[in-house]
């Protein structure tokens, strides 16, 4: 029905809601869970899963989800607010006049870009 709605091919009958409500009213009201027979209790699993096991399992699961959350975090980059060519002339001037700058030799790049 969802697919049909998405395709706008769904023809919802006007009395559908009232029929659903009537069926819900006919359902018996359950106020307490049905008692489980003593023989059916989960004692048979106790030798394998004691309270410590459950704690460890919960911790592992929590660590897994925290790790998954951290791994899937987007990389937080420093704000890069300056456009690429905005500071080219300053960088070039720095390389030209700084007392020690090996980048001196790559000036051709900036000159090419500036022309």
């Amino acid at each position: 029905m969802i697919r049909d709605v998405l395709r706008e091919e769904c023809w919802v009958q006007s009395d559908m809601t009232s029929r659903i409500m009537a069926q819900l009213a006919d359902e018996p009201t359950m106020v307490a869970p049905q008692a489980v027979a003593a023989s059916q209790k989960i004692s048979h699993i106790r030798p394998h899963f004691n309270k410590y096991t459950w704690s460890i399992a919960a911790s592992v699961a929590a660590a897994f989800f925290v790790g998954l959350f951290l791994i899937n975090q987007p990389e937080v980059a420093a704000p890069d607010l300056i456009a690429d060519n905005d500071t080219d002339q300053y960088v070039l001037a720095h390389h030209n006049y700084a007392p020690t700058s090996a980048t001196y030799y790559m000036q051709n790049v900036a000159y090419n870009a500036g022309e």
Binding site: A78, Y90, P99
Partner: peptide
């Protein structure tokens, strides 16, 4: 290591640049 500080008067119509780049 060397660092340059450039100081330029803001004139009319000049777009201010604020931020950092690596």
């Amino acid at each position: 290591a060397s660092v340059s500080l450039f100081v330029e008067p803001m004139i009319k119509g000049m777009q201010p640049r604020v931020g950092k780049k690596s």
